[in-house]
Amino acid sequence: MREYQSLLVEQQGAIAHVMINRPAKANSMDEAFWTEMVEVFDWVDRTDSVRVAVISGVGRNFSAGIDLQMLAQAAGSMVADIGRNAERIRRNILKLQSAFNAVDECRKPVIAAVHGYCIGGAIDLISACDMRYCTPDAHFSIKEIDMGMAADVGTLQRLPRLIGDGIMRELAYTGRPVYGEEAARIGLVNQVFADHGALLEGVMDIARQIAAKSPLAIRGTKEMIRYSRDHSVADGLNYIATWNAAMLQSEDLKVAVAAHMSKKPAEFAD
């Protein structure tokens, strides 16, 4: 178990369980959170024994989004010159974006397990994950609109590719809440579990299934999905041909075929 100021990280076999750990503050994202996310997901990315990451929240909520005290401190640091303020704000936004880019760009699949509040910056976070699961009482909201601002850490860029443009615009323009069953209906989450315990058990089971696969095959699959999101079909086909020209020579392919023929579980190197 690794304990940070805002996060708890536990490696359970091949699974890294990353827990947002500010339950007294509804797991709101303070200044330390943004730096620690980059550090933790750099560790996940480069640690070969970790094959999957799960993100959840300690206590009653996943996360209530960015800590408002952090926003107040940023507002209090403004100077008289508009240009210098703009440069400072832009730099700060890019720093926040890097925390969730680290999740999106991680070589390993990342799964979000959501219960309670998942609002504002927490939507940005789960939008950067590979899959999302929740409880019936999970409360999703693009809350930035009610704070007089546009979401700026990834929601508006990633969410339309998950739930479709029209429903994303409705949620972004109104800030209305979405709960578990509707979240599943619109494709925001893959599945709704009965309660928090069942959620974690179910998500960990899915993570174990992924961890049992060839890590090279999982790596290639995530890379191709991410690449195809931002490129044409022709570009994606060309890339996978080049990628697999190397990866199909891996020992993992031989191990997988032998396991399939013998009807025994495959065991892949990290």
Rank of each mutant, 00 (worst) to 15 (best):
L7D: 09
L8Q: 08
G13K: 03
A14H: 11
A14L: 11
M19H: 04
N21T: 05
N27R: 07
S28E: 11
M29V: 03
D30C: 13
D30E: 13
E31M: 08
F33W: 08
F33C: 08
T35W: 02
M37W: 06
V40C: 06
V40T: 08
F41C: 12
D42C: 02
D42G: 03
W43E: 13
R46V: 01
R46F: 01
S49W: 02
V50E: 00
V50L: 04
G57A: 09
V58R: 04
V58H: 01
A64T: 04
A75W: 08
A75I: 07
G76I: 00
I82A: 15
G83D: 12
G83I: 12
R88N: 06
N92V: 01
N92S: 06
I93R: 08
I93W: 01
K95L: 01
A99F: 10
A102K: 11
A113D: 10
D124M: 01
S127G: 08
D130F: 00
D130S: 02
D130A: 03
C134A: 10
H139Y: 11
D146A: 15
D152I: 04
V153F: 06
G154I: 04
Q157T: 09
R161N: 13
I163W: 04
D165N: 14
D165S: 13
G166R: 13
I167P: 04
I167Q: 11
R169L: 15
E170S: 08
A172L: 06
Y173W: 09
Y173S: 11
Y173H: 06
R176N: 03
R176V: 04
P177G: 09
Y179W: 07
G180I: 05
E181F: 10
E182I: 08
R185N: 12
G187N: 14
L188Y: 09
A194I: 07
D195N: 15
H196I: 07
G197P: 02
L199E: 00
V203Q: 09
R208K: 13
A212D: 10
K213P: 00
S214T: 07
A217R: 14
T221R: 15
T221W: 07
E223T: 08
M224S: 14
R226M: 14
S228R: 12
S232E: 11
D235M: 07
D235V: 05
Y239M: 09
A241I: 05
W243H: 13
N244L: 15
M247T: 12
L253R: 10
A258L: 10
S262N: 10
A266M: 03
F268D: 14
D270G: 06
